[in-house]
Design a protein around this nucleic acid. Structure first.
Lengths: 151, 151
DNA sequence: TAAATGTTGACTAAAGGAGTCAACATTTAA
DNA sequence: TTAAATGTTGACTCCTTTAGTCAACATTTA
């Protein structure tokens, strides 16, 4: 159930850029603060730019700037675009559903669906701002009950 | 955040054996019911045997038998032994903690911890019996609040 | 004793993860 | 105007994991 380095590093970079909202930050500096090599960051930042999270400025004093507001950057979304679906299994994925021959009578699918829903619930409610302020989304018990299969 | 085929197939096999509790089921039959090749199942069943979930009977009419009671087989445990920690990141893993240089000031670790706790909460409360009876663990809201960081 | 099974370990092929590198394009400060 | 500092792009490599396959062997029972 791992998150890959790309997802982790992307979030690290977004945190650095979020702390410097409005300011241009060079790859070099992001590299120092995230402990990710410049070369590898290039790949990741470029992808985040193409996805609309960042803007770039070339030349001397160039770098990257956060485009959106930190409260509008959803962690679940970032992880999905960088790593694919949150679901542990294709059969339970909403964004990339994959059929399975056993599905009609599968006793595991409800479990995978529950896991997916739970992960999605946590990550989709968390924004970059929440992380910057060390404030994780408070999950109301009743909300949680709402989407759970209990029969 | 994927579960590998080994974890999925192991659970499929356990479900077949759970349905036939007390009876010997041949690899051949498990293969037919799970759609996993006999050769691959051998690996997986042997591992489950070594871990104490199954017993085997050799020779004609041989096969595997579920050793423990279905209500005593914990899904979180099965996934951990076959796939490793549930945590999406080493820094948030309890069973296989991995240090990280950024940890003292890391703004991501609380997120990974929350994800880990949530996944573990769901899987550790689910037993093979629950799956067989299509009854997923009912998660009380108050219980859930208890382990959540909310500051 | 032959056939049906489990046991074990070596092997392989493909995919994904984690980066590296180099040539290039653009901007800005000197 | 030019050199230095950056971002851009794509090809490339190395490693690990995943997902099996296969074959020789051991044991049991009809």
């Amino acid at each position: 159930m791992k998150v890959s380095s790309k997802g982790e590093y992307a979030l690290r970079a977004l945190l650095v850029l979020g702390e410097n909202h409005g300011k241009v930050v060079s790859i070099q500096e992001i590299s120092e603060r995230t402990l990710v090599t410049v070369n590898y960051l290039e790949q990741i930042l470029l992808k985040l730019k193409k996805l609309g999270y960042l803007e770039s400025k070339r030349g001397t004093n160039g770098g990257y700037i956060l485009k959106r507001n930190t409260s509008e950057i959803n962690i679940g979304e970032v992880i999905r675009v960088l790593e694919g679906p949150l679901s542990p299994m294709g059969c339970a994925s909403i964004t990339k559903y994959k059929a399975c021959q056993l599905e009609p009578t599968c006793q595991l699918k409800p479990l995978w669906s529950l896991v997916r829903d739970t992960i999605a619930y946590v990550l989709d409610q968390t924004t970059l701002e929440d992380l910057l302020e060390n404030r994780l989304t408070f999950i109301k018990g009743d909300d949680l009950l709402g989407f759970k299969r209990t029969n």
